[in-house]
Structures are given as C-alpha cells and as structure tokens.
Computed example of a mutant assay.
Amino acid sequence: MFFVYFYYTGVTYTTPYLKGALGASATLVLLIGTIRTYGITLFSGPVFGAIASKVGSPSRVITVGSVLAAVVLLGFVFLPQKPAIAVLAAVLVIFLGFVANGVFGIVSGQLTEGKVPLEVFGTASGLLSVVGFLPDTFSSTWFGKLMDQKGNAAYDDIFIILAISALIAGAIAVVLLWYVKKHKADEPLDEAVADAGIVEA
C-alpha cells in the first residue's frame, strides 16, 4: 500500500511536467487534468476490480500494473523535453493515470488475498491506512525541494523515484503471491493433521 500510494499520488507531477518541461499549451494541460480527475478515476477502479476478480488475484494485477507504471515513468525520463513531444506525453499521462488509479483501487484487496484472520482484520486495516498513506507526510516536501534545486531537470529524478517505488510495489505483490501459494500447499497437511486429531507439540 505504501509504495502503490507513493507512485499513485506522484502521478500528479505529470501535469506540471507537461507544462513546465514540455511547454504544452494550457488547453492541453487542462484537458489532461480533467480527464485524469473526472474520467479515469470513474472507470479505472471498476475495470481493475473486474480484472482482479477474473484473474482471482489482486496481487497479480498489481504486479503487472506496477511494472507498466514503472515503464511509463522511465519513459518520461528518456523523452526529449520538447513541445513536439507533448501530445505523445499526454497520451502516456492518461495511460499512467488509468493504471495507477486502477492499482490503487484494488491494493487493499491483498488483505483478503493474504487471508488475514477476521479477529485481527480491523487492526490490519488500520495499520494499512497508517503506513500506506505515509507518503503524504514527505513526498511533496521532497519533490518540491528537488524542483527548487534543479528546476525542470528535477522531473527525471522524480520519475525515477516513482518508478522504483512501482517496481518495489510489484515485487512485494510477488512475495504475497508466493506466500499465498505456500499457504495453500500447507493446507492439505494441516487439514489431515486436524482430521487425525494430532496436536503439534
């Protein structure tokens, strides 16, 4: 949740990137901002939720989505900062916003996927919120300082940091998949032990 939320909120820096670094028109920037805020948000969550239900694993979708987000973020680093590239960048911004919003919409589903016991589910949800939203306490200050120091050149650093965050989020989702698979593998043995009335020492 921490790393997903980090790059999910960091996507907002693509708007000033379009205007400041690429020199996109105010009309294009306003259009992209509106689509990302009022269009993508309405559809990405349900779409990713449906995909996660069909796949049967939020973590699988989070892994793929986070890797895609990392690729796009790194793509911004290598795009030339010229007005001619603004339209292509705008399309990538919309796609990135769709993916980031979608992944964020299903990330809490990992609590259920990880089979958190009901007796501690409330506590786990509370910890998820406290730890997950911690990027709000430092990301704006960090990125703002980078922009004060480097100007438009700071966007490369910001996008690299966000890409690393996305890759870590994907890696942790893979770890959860491994844990769930291991847990399922242990279940038959646990049931057999219980059926036999054997109590472990």
Score class of each variant (00 low, 15 high):
Ala24Cys: 09
Phe133Tyr: 14
Trp142Leu: 11
Ala163Ser: 03
Pro46Asp: 15
His183Ile: 07
Thr15Phe: 05
Val29Asp: 04
Phe138Ala: 04
Phe3Asp: 06
Ala154Leu: 01
Val77Asn: 04
Val4Asn: 10
Leu128Ile: 07
Val67Arg: 09
Tyr5Ala: 06
Leu189Arg: 12
Lys82Asp: 15
Thr141His: 13
Ala166Cys: 06
Ala24Gly: 08
Gly10Phe: 03
Met1Ile: 05
Ala86Leu: 01
Val175Phe: 14
Leu176Met: 15
Ile35Gly: 06
Val64His: 01
Val193Lys: 15
Ala21His: 04
Asp136Glu: 08
Tyr8Gly: 01
Thr63Trp: 01
Gly45Ile: 15
Asp156Ala: 11
Ile35Asp: 05
Thr123His: 09
Val61Ala: 12
Ile160Gln: 06
Arg60Cys: 10
Ser44Glu: 02
Phe6Tyr: 14
Val103Gln: 10
Phe138Ile: 09
Ala192Lys: 02
Lys150Trp: 10
Val77Glu: 05
Ala69Lys: 06
Leu167Arg: 00
Thr34Leu: 10
Val61Ile: 13
Tyr179Ser: 15
Gly132Met: 01
Met1Asp: 13
Val107Ile: 08
Trp142Val: 05
Ala86Ser: 10
Leu42Ile: 11
Leu96Cys: 03
Met147Glu: 12
Val71Ile: 15
Ile85Asp: 07
Gly102Leu: 13
Ala166Ile: 00
Phe78Tyr: 15
Ile161Asp: 06
Ser140Trp: 14
Gly105Gln: 09
Thr137Ala: 09
Phe104His: 07
Pro58Asp: 14
Leu30Met: 14
Ile198Gln: 12
Trp178Asp: 08
Val180Leu: 05
Leu134Val: 07
Gly102Lys: 14
Thr34His: 12
Phe76Ala: 02
Tyr17Arg: 04
Phe76Tyr: 15
Thr27His: 08
Tyr17His: 04
Leu118Gln: 05
Gln110Met: 10
Lys54Trp: 12
Leu28Lys: 02
Gly23Gln: 00
Ala169His: 10
Gly56Tyr: 07
Val193Leu: 13
Ala90Gln: 11
Leu127Thr: 09
Ala86Gly: 00
Leu18Trp: 04
Met1Leu: 09
Ser129Phe: 10
Gly39Asn: 12
Ala124Gln: 14
Val29Thr: 05
Gly39Phe: 04
Tyr38Arg: 05
Ser44Gly: 06
Ala192Phe: 10
Asp148Leu: 08
Phe3Leu: 08
Ser59Cys: 12
Val174Ser: 01
Leu96Met: 02
Val174Cys: 05
Thr27Asp: 13
Thr34Ile: 15
Lys184Ser: 07
Leu18Lys: 08
Phe143Ile: 14
Tyr13His: 01
Leu73Asp: 02
Ala171Glu: 02
Ile172Ala: 07
Pro135Gly: 02
Pro188Tyr: 11
Ala166Gly: 13
Val67Phe: 15
Gly105Ile: 03
Ala50Trp: 14
